[in-house]
C-alpha cells in the first residue's frame, strides 16, 4: 500500500490495510471469484489476438467537432481577457464537469469546489493551451480531473465537519458508476470496444483509476490482488488499449 492510498482512507471511507481490506467491499457485480481471476491470467496471453479490427465511426462526430472548435475559440478568447468566453465554457460543460469531479471526490460540495478552482485555472492558463496538443475539451477536463485528484490525495475531507457517510457516495455506488462509465459509452465507440476486448480485471483496474481516481493500492485492495500484480496488469491493459486504439 503506498502513501497516497493511506491518505485516501480519509476520503474513501473504507479500510486501507490489514485483514479488513477484503473483497467483501466489492458489490456482487464487482466481485471476482478465484476461478475468474485465474481465467483472467489464462487469457492474458491471448489478449493481443482478441482485438477487433472493426473501426466503427463515432456517432455525432460532426457535433463533437463543432463543440471542440467552439471550446478552442473560447479558450483563445479567455486568454485575451473575454470573460463571456469563460462563461460559455461554463454553460456548455459545468454540469458534466461537476459530475466528473463528484465521481472522484464523491461529494457534491467538494465537486463544485473543484470545478470553481478549475475554472480559475482555465482562465489564468488559457494562453498555454495549444490546439496542436490535443483537444480543448481534453485540456479543460484534465484541469478538473487534476484538481479532483489533488483534493483526494490531500485527504482534505478530514477538515470537514458533519456526518459524511450520509451525503457521500458509498463505495458500492461508486464502483457501479465506474463500470457504468464504460457501459454507457457510445455503442460504436472505439474506446468502448477496445475496453471490451480487455480481460475483465484489467478493464476494472483501468476504469477504477481513471473514472474513480483510485490508486494502485486501492485497486489492488478492491480486486483482491497483490499490489505488484495490480500495477503490472494495469500497465499491460493500458498497453493493449493503446495498440487497439492506434
Amino acid at each position: 500500500m503506498d502513501a497516497g492510498a493511506k491518505n485516501n482512507f480519509l476520503l474513501h471511507p473504507f479500510p486501507a490495510s490489514g485483514v479488513s481490506l477484503q473483497c467483501g467491499f466489492i458489490p456482487a457485480g464487482m466481485h471476482l471469484r478465484l476461478d475468474e481471476r485465474m481465467a483472467a491470467v489464462a487469457t492474458a496471453e491471448t489478449e493481443y489476438a482478441q482485438h477487433s479490427i472493426d473501426a466503427a465511426g463515432e456517432n455525432g462526430l460532426a457535433l463533437a467537432t463543432d463543440l471542440s472548435t467552439d471550446l478552442e475559440a473560447a479558450l483563445g478568447a479567455c486568454a485575451s481577457g473575454d470573460r463571456t468566453a469563460l462563461r460559455r465554457i461554463f454553460d456548455a460543460e459545468s454540469g458534466r464537469l461537476v459530475a466528473v469531479a463528484q465521481r472522484i471526490v464523491r461529494r457534491r460540495d467538494l465537486a463544485e469546489e473543484v470545478v470553481q478552482e478549475a475554472f480559475l485555472r482555465i482562465w489564468t492558463h488559457a494562453h498555454q493551451y495549444r490546439p496542436d496538443r490535443g483537444s480543448a475539451r481534453g485540456w479543460i477536463y484534465a484541469i478538473v480531473r487534476n484538481r479532483a485528484l489533488n483534493l483526494l490525495r490531500d485527504g482534505k475531507r478530514e477538515d470537514l465537519p458533519g456526518d459524511e457517510r450520509l451525503e457521500t457516495l458509498q463505495d458500492s455506488d461508486q464502483l457501479e458508476q465506474i463500470m457504468a462509465a464504460w457501459q454507457t459509452l457510445d455503442r460504436h465507440s472505439r474506446l468502448r470496444e477496445c475496453l471490451g476486448s480487455l480481460d475483465d480485471i484489467k478493464r476494472r483496474g483501468i476504469l477504477m483509476a481513471y473514472v474513480g481516481g483510485y490508486t494502485h493500492g486501492e485497486i489492488a485492495g478492491r480486486l483482491c490482488i497483490p499490489l505488484g500484480t495490480a500495477k503490472s496488469w494495469i500497465r499491460r491493459g493500458l498497453s493493449s488499449l493503446r495498440e487497439c486504439m492506434a
Binding site: S94, G95, R96, V98, A99, V100, Q102, R103, R108, E112, V115, G134, S135, R137, G138, W139, Y141, A142, R145, A181, W182, T184, L185, D186, S189, L191, R192, L207, Y210, V211, L241, R242, M245
Partner: peptide
C-alpha cells in the same frame, strides 16, 4: 487525455 475523454464526456450532467 483524448483517448480516455469519452469516459468523462459521456457522463449524465448534474444541475450545478
Amino acid at each position: 487525455r483524448d483517448r480516455f475523454l469519452p469516459l468523462d464526456t459521456g457522463i449524465e450532467p448534474v444541475s450545478v
